[in-house]
Design a protein around this nucleic acid. Structure first.
Lengths: 222, 222
DNA sequence: TAGATTGTTAATCGATTAACAATC
DNA sequence: TAGATTGTTAATCGATTAACAATC
């Protein structure tokens, strides 16, 4: 039984054991394992060793094993991991074994883009609503989701049982929307606005900053 | 004079000194410093201490100072950093003190989205061309850039003096396009395709995996 | 059984941070 | 000068990896 710490970003194992602190990087890799396992399953592969998985991801095999043991023992010495089973376990751990309901705030260029992007739907994520403040946009349907008045954000997030909010507002609005979102009980935010957001420690905020990605790439131009 | 190592991801300081190895994370932060300094400059602030910058970014002040000394000495003890000057230096280091020419490959949902996204233009990046294989798309203009035939990728990248390529193709095409891009002499790729790309060590590939960001967020739903 | 691979500990590596002499 | 803040070293922290006994 591993040492237990209580901290934000905690994970409660299925057995009901106390939560252990899991590095964010481990969770990201878990999600990558999930994708590789999906591909293997589609190919009809039944077993995979930590070495196989490591190669597919470009990481060290010890890391694969260590990552997985944060959550339990899923492998069989001398054999490896059963692809189907491990995949199911990881999906359960990540909570993507069911539909995840997503709302998007800010139906501008990037927001619209993200709504039409098919990549989310594919993985059991469903954008159930969008929000904006522009009267011209409110009331329309976009990619199967209604565009609602930002003024009704809190009640709509609640009544539509939204799990995750995508922020794609102008910079000035981001913190305000973030606060409202948190008040509505949302625990996970995907932030595309290049603003540092302040949120309580029990709310997970993932920042995706396209400008930073681009600008830091320029450094590598010889 | 700091210790010098030669390695990929190298940076040649202005003086012409040998390149030192710079962690990717430092470059990302440099880009963030740049943005904060821009805001300060707009506000008319003349000086900022490492503490000021650290607070704006939510990092440690020693880290700010250390990051900067990878590239030189820009501060004045007892005073801090001159905002305008430091910003100019960082832009020079990042090579964003001039227009950076970008091409996008794969004009699907996400690709179109990225083209209409204003965030890139703002920072001196200009999408000068897009590429696709669909005859219906080829020949059109989209957001001010021509959609060209993917078959002409190599020569067009060269003749249009493209610096950075954005990959937004289907998964199957990603590695093929990556190889062509590398052959055309491109040194920096922003990859939105959820495929692990293989590229020579002197080519910088930044992966932005929206599905992974989303999926790993689901973990934090209590 | 012999061979393979896990789970886990201990060693290594690298990145962050504290501390402080140098200096404006 | 006194006060403030840099640049830089050494200490700390955390994450990655090597190694190997346990086990299928």
């Amino acid at each position: 039984m591993p040492e237990i710490e209580t901290d934000s970003g905690a994970f409660a194992p299925p057995g009901g054991a106390p939560p252990a602190k899991i590095p964010k990087a481990v969770i990201k890799r878990l999600s990558r394992y999930s994708r590789v396992l999906q591909e293997l399953e589609l190919k009809g592969v039944e077993k995979a060793s930590s070495r196989d998985l490591a190669e597919a991801l470009g990481v060290n095999s010890a890391q694969v094993r260590k990552d997985l043991t944060y959550f339990g023992q899923f492998g069989i010495p001398g054999v490896g991991y059963y692809v189907r089973e491990l995949r199911a376990q990881i999906k359960r751990i990540l909570r993507t074994d069911r539909e995840v309901r997503v709302a998007l705030v800010g139906v501008g260029n990037l927001g619209s883009a993200l709504m039409s992007y098919g990549g989310f739907q594919r993985q059991n994520f469903r954008i159930v609503a969008a929000f904006d403040s522009a009267p011209a946009k409110i009331g329309r349907m976009q990619n199967g989701a209604p565009v609602l008045d930002i003024a009704r954000l809190q009640e709509e997030l609640r009544s539509r049982a939204v799990d995750i909010v995508i922020l794609a507002t102008p910079g000035e609005a981001a913190q305000i929307v973030c606060d409202l979102t948190v008040k509505a009980g949302i625990k996970a935010i995907l932030n595309f606005v290049p603003t540092r957001l302040t949120a309580p420690p029990d709310v997970a905020v993932h920042d995706v900053d396209l400008s930073i990605e681009m600008e830091s790439l320029a450094f590598y131009l010889r």
